[in-house]
Design a protein around this nucleic acid. Structure first.
Lengths: 232, 232
DNA sequence: CCTATATTTCAGTAACTACTGAAAGACAGG
DNA sequence: CCTGTCTTTCAGTAGTTACTGAAATATAGG
């Protein structure tokens, strides 16, 4: 399903097949949730390490596992898989990677990598990084999880909640205006008015909550949550 | 973009074209947010309805506005537009509607309506309703907004957060196991371990927060939020 | 049993999103 | 200026999801 084999790249036969075996073996034992994930990812070329005690043998496998899962989650939340995967890659490795690193690791095209990286920068959850004397650009993930999510929440609120609120207000106004000249409103109008009002109330409150998150990212937040958990 | 013009169906001439015109008019003026992407979707076209004294002239227009916007929002959150629209319709009208009502109002096929209604029932945010002596089934939306969102959050947590948490634990275990036989772990492993740990911490906390929401739906929640807002 | 009506299922297709690869653009160093 | 390296853009297409319409199924009443 995801098995992506760019015909041109065609990572040298021998290496590739070796790597594949390695991956499958490594992933086999614990499993546990393999059932949940439709099928197990295989096709990532791993640079063959000649040393008997392959350093960090599990590292890459573990990272890939996380990357994949993160990508799947993103997808169901309306973030495209590749973007989420790139982000997971930068986050989990924790140090700057260039475009080619991303392309090779996730096995995607240059164009895709370029566009996705830019989008992530626009969101503000990764940032560009120039290394002195180096020509190419590197990217790194924010490292504070709270900060990352604050940014995401703020942005989604702005893009998606605010317009809805706007619309609700507008609808309510329409219904009110309609009634100005006339007599008592019909029951249907009453019901709709009430529903819109409830929804707006809910969203206003939620927004305030988000505001707290955003305003208190990092430092304050753990405290906030602790307060909340105790208060109930 | 959203204008749905079933080419083939050409349902009953008069009715259909009337409905369609109405819709297009409503959506037409400045297009506005459709661009979806990174830009600000503020004001929405105010459909000037020029009907004489049709009862509740504005009602339908206002409802449609809300329905549409709700559908758009759903879409960006990974819920398909039609499902979100059906839900908005049931919610905003506030009284039971049958399959044909839904089909006619949203201009969708019977199959689509049937499947979407079932999915909404599965989510638990609308429910089936039999009217005595009536053959056909009706559907109505939950009316408590808090309850609706609690359900949605609970379900998404279960479907999407929990697997990620599972995976993170698994990854961490892999990295730990790897180190058992060997000496000190490489710096790369250390970094990844730390990142996974932070993420898990974050998600655990978030989950607790959600738990609160779920457990306190309706009654308790407003209080909870008030506490939170004051405490900071 | 049959008939009329309501509902579900699903193959085929339309609509959409994500992705590739090649070409154009940008820019440092010679 | 040119040259080589890196980045961005975008037309075309692969892959995915959503939707239709018709056929199959279910059910109430006669």
């Amino acid at each position: 399903m995801v098995a992506r084999l760019t015909s041109s790249t065609a990572a040298v036969g021998a290496d590739a097949s070796l790597a594949r075996t390695e991956l499958v073996d490594a992933a086999a034992p614990p499993v546990g949730l393999a059932a949940a994930a439709p099928d197990v990812p295989t096709a990532f070329p791993v640079p063959a390490v000649a040393t008997g005690k392959a350093p960090d043998a599990q590292l890459r496998v573990a990272q890939d596992l996380f990357i994949r899962r993160w990508g799947e989650m993103g997808q169901t939340w309306g973030i495209n898989r590749t973007m989420a995967e790139i982000h997971a890659f930068l986050y989990v490795t924790g140090h700057p990677q260039c475009t080619d690193d991303v392309m090779d690791r996730l096995n995607i095209s240059r164009g895709n990598a370029s566009m996705s990286l830019r989008a992530l920068c626009d969101w503000g959850i990764i940032r560009r990084l120039h290394k002195r004397g180096e020509r190419r650009e590197y990217f790194e993930s924010l490292n504070d999880v709270w900060e990352m999510f604050s940014i995401i929440i703020a942005e989604r609120k702005r893009r998606e909640m605010d317009p809805v609120l706007e619309t609700i207000k507008q609808c309510r106004k329409m219904l009110d205006d309609d009634a100005i000249g006339g007599g008592p409103k019909s029951e249907a109008v009453q019901v709709t008015r009430q529903r819109l009002e409830s929804m707006q109330e809910f969203m206003d409150l939620t927004n305030k909550l988000f505001q707290q998150f955003i305003g208190n990212a990092k430092s304050g937040l753990t405290k906030v949550v602790r307060v909340l958990l105790k208060a109930v």
